[in-house]
Structure formats: structure tokens, C-alpha cells
Simulated assay, not measured.
Amino acid sequence: MEDILRPIYQERASQSNTLGVLLIEKKQKSSHITESFDVILLVIVKDAEQPLFIKHYSYNNQKAAMHVITESQLQEWLLLGTNRRIFEWIHEAKILFDRNENVANLKMELSDFPFNGRKIKMGLEFAKLIRRYVDGKALFESKQFLDAYNYVVHSLHHLARLAVIENGLHPELTVWHQVKQIEPEIFKLYEELVNSEESLEKRLELLFLASEFMIHFRTNIGTAHLLEVLSKKEYWQFNEIMNEEELIPYSVDLAVLIEYLIEKHLLDVVNIETKGQGVYHRCYCVHKKLS
């Protein structure tokens, strides 16, 4: 298949905008990594009108897909984890073309997983974890048990991903397989939620108690990045936090996370007078003992 696709990827490689071309082949009949295709061509470019362009090919009862992605789109996927398969693709890929060792350096960076990169990713996973936990608990307290169950499953998934990142690894599609080896306590929680013969209400009640302990245990590492950024100013209005470049990825989970950190005395509320009598701007600052 590689020989057949050679004219396609050579044409891409000849373009100055192309940083790298990678080949990912299906290893076994049921392999999920190539999304039912026999081959994936991953082309990384510096700039493009579309951040992602996909084209499909067929030859002799086989099929291939070419994914052309911009460098910035790739970095966003790697940071936010919004395309988890990309880690497997880069890890498993054969490098067909690499301009100035861009791809080789990327593979090395993913393998090393520098601490600063881990800290940001842990912050994002922690924010998602808190959002699902808080929303799930509110649903549980209003006796919406099936909806609460859905949120708890998601919160455990983010807890599992957080644990994997904390251990210096990238969460893969088989995150529960990773967690079973690394953090068996979290895996046991998941098993109890899914397989227990207790009533759903009882299972959720026990899970919220156990999750609260595990979240508390990881609060410091999960909030290190956010608090580090917020320590740069005396206090912040919420809109300033939302638009701070380093914190934009937290987006929709930010308001819930901030309220959680106030409750845990990691952030303080600062009221600043407005022109309206008795009305204040609600601002936020890192708790003085932490700053």
C-alpha cells in the first residue's frame, strides 16, 4: 500500500509548507487505530486554509485516508486531548518525510512528556473532573439517579486520565487498562459502580464519598497550573481569567472550578466597589497563604 501511495505523499513532501508525512498501517483485522482503514497518511503542514482536511482513497479492495492537519491544530489536539487517537498515530507511525526533524522532535517530546506540559494537562483534566462531579452530585441530590450515574462515569474517566498523566504517561484510548496497572483503587471504584449489585442510589452515594477523597488528594497537583497563572496579579475579574491566553482552554469548566477552589480556601473573593451603592465587582485572588 505504501508503494501505491508514494506519488501522493511525495507530492505533499515536495511542498515547502509540509513539515512531515507519517504512515499508520492497520496491524490486525479488528484494529481500531486506523478507524477501519487499511492505511492512514498523516500530513502535518505549517499553515492551511482548513485546520483539518481529509481525503479517502481506494485500491484493490483496500482503502486509505489522508489527514492533512496544521501544526497549530495538532498542538491543540495534543494539549486538550480532544483527539485521543492522535497520540497512538504519532507513536505507531512510520515517518516517511520529516523536514528539519520536526516529527522526530515531536515524538521525543511526547515520549519525555515534560513536567510543564503535564501540569497544564492535569489542570484541564481536573477542571473537567470537578465539573462532572459537581453536576453529578447536584443531580443525585435531586434524585435524578440515571443522569447522575452518567456524570459519575464521566468524572471517573477524568480522574483516571488525571492519574495516568500524573504518572508521566499520555492517556490512551484504553485508559482503563492503563489505570488498572497504575492506580488500581480508581479502577476498583469504576468496577464497583458498574458491577455492584447494590441499588443505583446506594452505589452513587458510596462513589461520591470515595471520589471526594480522591479529588481532595489530587487538588494540589490538579490546580497547580491555574493557581500559578492567577498568582501573577493581585486580583482578577472573571472575564480577565476567561480571556487570559494560558487559561482559555479551561473555558466552560472555569466558573465551576473557581467556585470549588473558593470552597476549598485556595482562592479568595475580593469585592471592588462599583458606582452602584452596595453593588461590588466580584473578583478573585489566590489565597494569601499560597501566593
Rank of each mutant, 00 (worst) to 15 (best):
I221E: 05
N167I: 04
V286W: 11
L227M: 08
E25S: 14
L19F: 07
P114A: 04
E245C: 01
E259R: 07
F126I: 01
F97N: 03
P7Q: 15
K121R: 15
L23D: 04
H157M: 14
T219E: 13
L79H: 01
Y190K: 15
H177T: 13
L110S: 04
Q237F: 06
G136F: 10
F140W: 09
E92R: 10
E25V: 07
N243W: 07
V21R: 07
H158L: 09
E205S: 14
E259I: 00
W77N: 05
V179Y: 07
N150T: 13
I44L: 09
K188T: 14
F115W: 04
T82P: 00
S14Q: 11
Q10H: 08
F37R: 07
G276P: 00
L207K: 07
I90A: 08
G278W: 00
K121C: 02
E101A: 08
E76Y: 05
E197P: 01
W89Q: 09
V21N: 05
V43E: 12
L106D: 10
A138W: 07
G222H: 00
Y9T: 12
L227R: 09
V175R: 06
N17V: 09
E201S: 11
Y260D: 10
F113A: 00
L22F: 09
K289I: 07
F145A: 05
V194S: 09
V256D: 12
L74Y: 05
L5A: 14
E166N: 12
F217G: 00
Y133W: 08
V153Y: 11
R131V: 01
I54Q: 15
L226R: 04
E192T: 06
N116Q: 15
P7I: 14
I24W: 00
L5Q: 07
F126M: 04
N100G: 04
T223Q: 01
Y59V: 06
S142E: 14
E125L: 05
E92H: 05
F187N: 13
Q75A: 02
C285Q: 15
I258T: 08
T34I: 10
F97S: 13
E192W: 02
L23K: 12
V256I: 14
H158V: 09
H177F: 06
V68Y: 01
K143M: 09
T174R: 14
Y190M: 10
I130T: 03
L209N: 11
N116F: 06
E246V: 00
L204Y: 01
Q15F: 02
L96H: 11
R203E: 10
C285D: 08
M66R: 11
E125I: 02
G81E: 02
D135I: 15
E35P: 03
V153A: 08
G20W: 02
